[in-house]
Computed example of a mutant assay.
Amino acid sequence: MKTPPRLQKDDFEALSEFRYQLRRFIRFSEDAAQSEGLTPLQYLLMLHIKGFPGRDWASISELAERLQSQHHGVVALVTRCEKAGLVTRTQDDKDKRLVQVRLTETGEQYLHRLAQLHRNELHSLSSVFQVSHISAFNDRD
């Protein structure tokens, strides 16, 4: 097994810059959600429902994985979002153990406004996340 090359100053600078820009984006996201009267987790829940591959709903387990949270915590979050009129949950017709979580029209409206803001912010950060900015991580020969 080949020993990885020793990290150089530019590796630490690239890591630092990446983490800084990532944290700036997360802070932007938190502030944007709160400006709409939502918590950052409510926004993320709605994003993961809408963004779930191949369908317009997600299960509690799938959302727990996407949010990197405990199942019971996601159940509580879904309950709060349901009370706020952002999501609905229904039992699956075939598998009664499966709960499908879907966005409501109100949830869709919030999500679209916030996602547009996030897309604009990502475009402004695009140069930071270019491959050339993290080239310091490539193995040195």
Rank of each mutant, 00 (worst) to 15 (best):
K83C: 06
F137N: 08
T3G: 04
R140K: 15
I134E: 06
L41Y: 09
H133Q: 15
G73N: 14
Q70S: 09
L38W: 09
H112G: 00
E82R: 08
H123F: 13
L41K: 11
L114F: 08
L122H: 08
R19F: 14
K2P: 14
V87T: 15
K96R: 02
V131N: 12
C81W: 00
Q8F: 10
R97W: 00
T90H: 11
A58T: 04
S127N: 10
D139E: 09
V75N: 07
Q68Y: 08
F18V: 08
Q91I: 04
L22E: 15
K83I: 04
F52S: 10
V87G: 09
V101P: 05
G85E: 11
N138W: 09
G54T: 05
D11V: 05
F12M: 14
Y110H: 15
H118Q: 13
P5N: 00
V87N: 08
V75P: 09
L15I: 15
T79L: 06
G51D: 11
L103D: 03
V78Y: 03
K83E: 15
F137S: 09
V75Q: 13
Q130L: 12
H48L: 05
L111N: 00
Q68T: 13
H118R: 12
V128P: 02
L117K: 15
S59I: 06
L15C: 13
T106Q: 14
P4L: 08
R6C: 07
A33M: 06
R89M: 07
D11T: 08
A58E: 06
P40M: 04
P4K: 00
R119L: 12
Y43G: 09
R102Q: 07
L45G: 12
H133K: 14
E82M: 09
F129T: 01
H72S: 13
G51K: 03
I60E: 04
E36I: 01
E62G: 10
L117N: 13
T90R: 12
D31E: 14
L63F: 11
E108F: 05
F12Q: 02
A115C: 04
G107I: 00
H112K: 03
G73M: 07
W57R: 01
F28V: 10
Q116V: 01
D11E: 13
A84V: 07
P5G: 06
S59N: 05
R97E: 06
